[in-house]
Amino acid sequence: MPLISYREALNQAMTEEMERDDRVFIMGEEVAQYDGAYKVSQGMLKKFGARRVIDTPISEEGFAGIGIGAAMAGLRPVIEFMTFSFSLVAIDQIVNNAANMRYMSGGQFAVPIVFRGSSGMAGCLAATHSHRLEAWYAHIPGLTVMMPATPADAKGMLKSAIRSDDPVIFMEHEVLYPERGEVPAGEHLVPIGKADIKRPGSDVTLITYSRSLKTTLAAATQLADEGISAEVIDLRTIRPLDLDTLLHSIIKTHRAVIIEEDWPYCGVGAGIADRVTQRVFDELDAPIRRVATKDAPVPYNRALEDSMLPSVPRIVAAVHDVVYR
């Protein structure tokens, strides 16, 4: 299989989908002439022309809404946010219009749209440019939320997102863009709502997604050295949650730790812990533990920022707590 970057995998997904369906187009800030702020859309203007690769003014609310309107009229827009931190300016469009349109029209209108772009803490970007908003969007009935952690998933998930008839929030991670991995050439679809066991194990279930997968896998390696077998599950889709895969694993391991780059309070991990506990409380040999980013705005200083993130020592410590050793 070809070894390509997460960034190239996303580009491949969009390019292939645009080749197969004229209704698909990409719109956003600097996506065309600049080749993408993070070069995800590199070469696409040249390949598809200005009709389908469209630079916008700095008007996130406006072009998010334009995408939704275009989707209501039958197109399949891919709207790029330079970073999801900027989607806060467009949140009325996403929540009130994209997510609600089908429901409040009694099923008459669909909104097949993908909002995609970078997100997360990428180093020294400070408070306004480091947001993790997955919990915000996963809260909303009507939205699908996807967050790929590997190049292969980036491609397969984005292709499925573009083919979805519902609005998808597709959050990439800025630090993952240069990560390389094996990616199937051509048709490769990862189903929406399916988690993936990235490392099988039997003593504890580690649940994570996006960039935290890497840290979690590193922790699992260290735990293996100690004789603790950790199963690592990559959620991939945050909403709808693949609860079956989680429960299946927890029934086997009886212990779970959730690792997320977002803040702890009202976070994705809180929702997962609640749903798991409701269903398999009796299977749990320890309370579910969470390793989240510390509850403070994201500082500029690199050492401070690093201290907030889920780290191998923090994950290992949480696992020790739940396995009682």
Partner: peptide
């Protein structure tokens, strides 16, 4: 913006 997107 929705109207504008429909026109788009």
């Amino acid at each position: 913006p929705l109207a504008t997107g429909v026109a788009f």
